[in-house]
């Protein structure tokens, strides 16, 4: 599967309170959450982001709380993929569980800047930076995580496994 979009670049240690502040956690609605995505670090992000756009970030993206509202807000905002130098572990797990594609790519995360147009091949992990005419390779996704993606997320995987 290939993804093409314009990039929003964020720094290191973007925490889940920055992705979606707790004051908005009295809803689980993706659209409502998306309207406040990244509000405390970029108040204009939610209104300017376009469906298919990509987030690039430094190390430890999604650190802090376990709130699944964070990947839900990002996905709800239309983001098609997050490329980071590294991810906090609960965010990493949550993203796979609810079907938000994310890639660890230290080299790419370093080079990509806001506005860059990327083409990402999710199967091979190859990231083309069309703006800068560069190519990066993301770290391979573990076979079990690939099984989750193929099943369509953890809940679908559980249904397959339990025969529900």
């Amino acid at each position: 599967m290939k993804i093409k979009g314009k990039t929003w670049k964020f720094a290191n240690d973007v925490d889940t309170d920055a992705i979606i502040a707790a004051r908005y956690l009295n809803t689980t609605d993706a659209k409502e959450l998306a309207a406040h995505c990244m509000e405390d670090i970029d108040p204009e992000f939610a209104s300017r982001v376009r469906p298919g756009d990509i987030i690039a970030a430094g190390k430890n993206f999604g650190c802090g709380s376990s709130r699944e509202h964070a990947p839900i807000a990002i996905k709800g905002a239309g983001i098609s993929c997050v490329v980071a130098q590294s991810f906090a572990r609960i965010f990493y797990r949550n993203s796979f569980n609810m079907g938000l594609p994310i890639l660890e790519c230290p080299e790419g995360a370093d080079r990509i800047q806001t506005g860059d147009e990327l083409e990402i091949d999710l199967d091979s992990g190859v990231i083309q930076n069309i703006t800068r005419k560069e190519t990066y390779r993301a770290q391979a996704i573990a076979p079990f995580m690939q099984k989750l993606i193929k099943a369509g997320g953890l809940i679908e995987y559980v249904r397959e496994q339990t025969g529900l």
């Binding site: 949550n94 569980n97 809940i155």
Partner: peptide, 26 residues
């Protein structure tokens, strides 16, 4: 626990870790 501070119970000698809501459902 679907809360990041679930790791608190490590103080008891448990392997305790926070997960997301979908993991909790599973």
């Amino acid at each position: 626990g679907a809360d990041s501070h679930t790791c608190t119970y490590g103080a008891l000698g448990a392997f305790a870790t926070g997960v997301g809501s979908t993991d909790l459902a599973a």
